[in-house]
Design a protein around this nucleic acid. Sequence first.
RNA 1: GCACCGCUAGCUCAACUGGUAGAGCAACUGACUCUUAAUCAGUAGGUUCGGGGUUCGAUUCCCCGGCGGUGUACCA
Length: 504
Amino acid sequence: MERKEECKVSANEQPKDAGKEREQRLEKLERLRELGVNPYPYRFQRTHSIAMLKENEEQISASESQVAIAGRVMSLRKHGHTAFGNIKDNTDTIQFYIRDDEVEEAEFEVFKLVDIGDIIGLWGGLFRTKTGELTLRVKKLEMLSKSLRPLPEKWHGLQNKELRYRRRYLDLIVNDDVMDVFIKRSKIMETMRQFLLSHHFLEVETPILQPIYGGAAARPFVTHHNALDIDLYLRIADELYLKRLVVGGMERVFEFSRDFRNEGMDKSHNPEFTMMECYAAYWDYNDMMGFVEEMISQISTTVLGDTKIIYQGQQIDLAPPWNRLKFFDAIYEKLGKDIRGLNEGELKGIADEKGLDTEGVKGNAALIDLLFSELVEPGLVQPTFIMDYPIEISPLAKAHRSEEGLVERFEPFVAGMEIGNAFSELNDPLDQRARFEEQTRMRAEGADETHPIDEDYLRALEHGLPPTGGLGIGIDRLVMLLADSPSIRDVILFPQMRPEEGRD
RNA sequence: GCACCGCUAGCUCAACUGGUAGAGCAACUGACUCUUAAUCAGUAGGUUCGGGGUUCGAUUCCCCGGCGGUGUACCA
């Protein structure tokens, strides 16, 4: 038929990286069609997942009923008239046993054309082999999707990290622990969503394409809208939009926000990442602190069954209450002196004294930030809220109610990793305007990651934002923590990579 | 961005100070009716990341480039 013609055409367009095995599998595909078998049928009615099959072994064996399962063939041990193999679905893997005198002749012919990697459906009953392994005794089988490429090797699996990230589908097939990480990721987000919903937060969606980016200090990606003929930015945060919604009367909102930052990549930074931001009217940052430790410990309990976790060999307990440590006190603990009120030269002197690289670090805020991140951060293994940050580096946070020069802001740290950011939101529109203007002044002096003025946001504030507590949690980092992953690439299905093409 | 390391068969890895590029798994042919890293006999499989150089001879040494990893810097 015409179909076969098409097949031959595509077979001629053999990809260079596929090798001879692909050709051999294409031949098998042809032979299946000659046998009147569609190698890519439309559906298959399963009676059980493999996990359910194993759970209900006794009942199924006793009733001698037939079951139907489907999955990918992971191994084959052929013995002439019989064969053993293993088939894997999303839940588990099970051995199957097929013999030519127990299935129809034509189906055994089909079976002979089955390769490792093919997706097949099997009907049969359960039995135990003489070595005691639970096995499906095949009465009937169906090809569900013929695989044209070989699976990675069966006991070393896929090791090459580049291939694992680029061909995540293979990584998932072959490395069960990878699947587990992403199941965990899903559960973490689901638990967080439920937690927020149960506290009467409303889930919303706000623009990813923004005419003015804001809500964080970062360089944006720029894109262009043709019909409007304007440049737009991919959001670096959804903060300013969510607070507009609070102005609008949505007293509690949240969004799982894919954010984009045009900056370097390393084991805790991917150019696109997921942040959960939420805002609650009439809360301050103290309320939010309690909320965070409650939420994270509940997620850990729900997903892992415990608040005690191990991250990269470090024992960590996420049970509330978490440590609370003021920003400058934390530095004082490490330095033995109070750096508040010191001028730039003095700060630089201290940094140099500590052997820190101050090359290119300009301004008090940057120096203070350097001291903090070098001296304090790595030591914050047990969950700790660092609170009350300098006002210069927090243009969206409300001035501290009792401490000059500080804002009511905290960041939760676990395992030396910053996993979020929160504050009593700045709702004084005049103060907010002054802060934006200060940012603009810093930009003029050469800081390239300052907040642009967002007049529409200021207008919204002038209509009145209630006192509000706001929070952002880095989902990727939270998943790293709970899945014990050393790199953000291990918790993002398709981490950013240079294109494979374009090699010389 | 910089430094170091890596890139060899579909996959996992070898190949000494430069001397014909090899194994296991996967694949192919044959044997085999409870195997499980099935076994046994045989077969095929390579632009050694790309380009240039040194050399009688380069997977190996040198240079340029690509991709990745790790560290570091920048960055929430």
